[in-house]
Computed example of a mutant assay.
Amino acid sequence: MSSAQIVSIVIGVIIAECTDIAPWLAKQLVRWSAQLQYLDRARAVIRAEELEAVIDSRPGKLFKLVTALLFTLQAGISWTRRAVHWWMLAREIGKGPTSAPTESDPLTEETTNLGADIADTPTRAAAKPRARRSGTGLSAKVLPELQKIAAELGVSGTGRMRKSQLITAIQEKQRETSD
């Protein structure tokens, strides 16, 4: 490392410690990471306040910034895991993409638009367990159960069928096998 590089690093550290840029940036990063990590807006605000208190308790302005960067890294990892989980869940139940997500996919739009209201995402509803419909027979079953039955009967292309189409295909296949 040359002496010019060392001098520039030392000057950068001195400027960061003598100005309020590092603590301001640390608080901005903490607020953003809390919004990224939590879907519930109220919980994100509370967590941001808690993290800001941690940042304020740190000695030294650069240490505050480094701490905020670590909080942001953790939030990014958490967000990535959640996005991958939702994408895999959507693929598993047959509603998601068959390959990599594209710009028009609801999951991709939600995960790439960080400024959107995270609490009202369509994927949050997809992650909740589905309520069973009342009734009997095939119409009482949820789509993944129907897809499993169809696969056992040898019906192909079930991932793209609507529930009514799937029920019809299962009934036709059952009629064929009983004849």
Rank of each mutant, 00 (worst) to 15 (best):
K148V: 14
R124W: 14
D120E: 05
I118D: 11
G76R: 03
P129Y: 12
L73Y: 09
T102C: 05
Q174R: 13
T19W: 01
R41F: 09
D179T: 05
I149P: 08
S3T: 05
E103H: 09
L153H: 09
L107D: 01
F63Q: 14
P23H: 07
L69V: 12
V54G: 02
L146Y: 11
I14H: 12
D20C: 04
K163T: 10
T108F: 15
L36Q: 10
T121L: 05
T102L: 08
D20V: 00
L39E: 10
D40V: 14
K128W: 05
K64L: 01
A26F: 06
A151P: 01
G159Y: 11
S164Q: 13
V7M: 04
E172L: 09
T177W: 00
I55M: 06
G12E: 08
A16C: 05
A44Q: 03
A68D: 02
V54T: 15
A68S: 06
L29C: 01
A16L: 11
I55Q: 02
A26S: 09
C18P: 00
P97G: 02
D56Y: 04
I9S: 12
R82E: 13
K141A: 01
K64C: 01
G96K: 00
R41M: 07
A90N: 07
F63P: 00
Q35W: 15
I93E: 06
A90E: 11
T102R: 10
G76T: 02
A26P: 05
K61W: 08
L62E: 02
S134N: 08
V45R: 06
A22P: 07
K27Y: 13
E103R: 10
L89I: 04
T67L: 14
R130M: 10
R133L: 14
Q74H: 12
R124L: 13
Y38R: 04
Q165Y: 01
T177I: 15
R130P: 02
G60S: 09
H85I: 12
E145R: 13
E109K: 14
T177H: 02
G137E: 01
A4L: 13
I167W: 03
G159F: 06
T111C: 06
T168H: 08
A100W: 13
A4W: 02
T108L: 09
A83S: 01
T168M: 13
V142Q: 13
I15Y: 07
E50G: 05
S8A: 07
E49R: 11
G154C: 03
R133A: 14
S78I: 08
L39W: 07
G96Q: 03
Q171P: 01
G115W: 09
K128Y: 07
I15H: 04
P23E: 09
R160D: 14
I149Q: 15
I149V: 15
P59A: 11
Y38T: 03
K95H: 08
V13W: 07
A150S: 07
S164A: 13
V7L: 12
L62W: 02
E17L: 12
I93G: 01
A34L: 07
T177R: 11
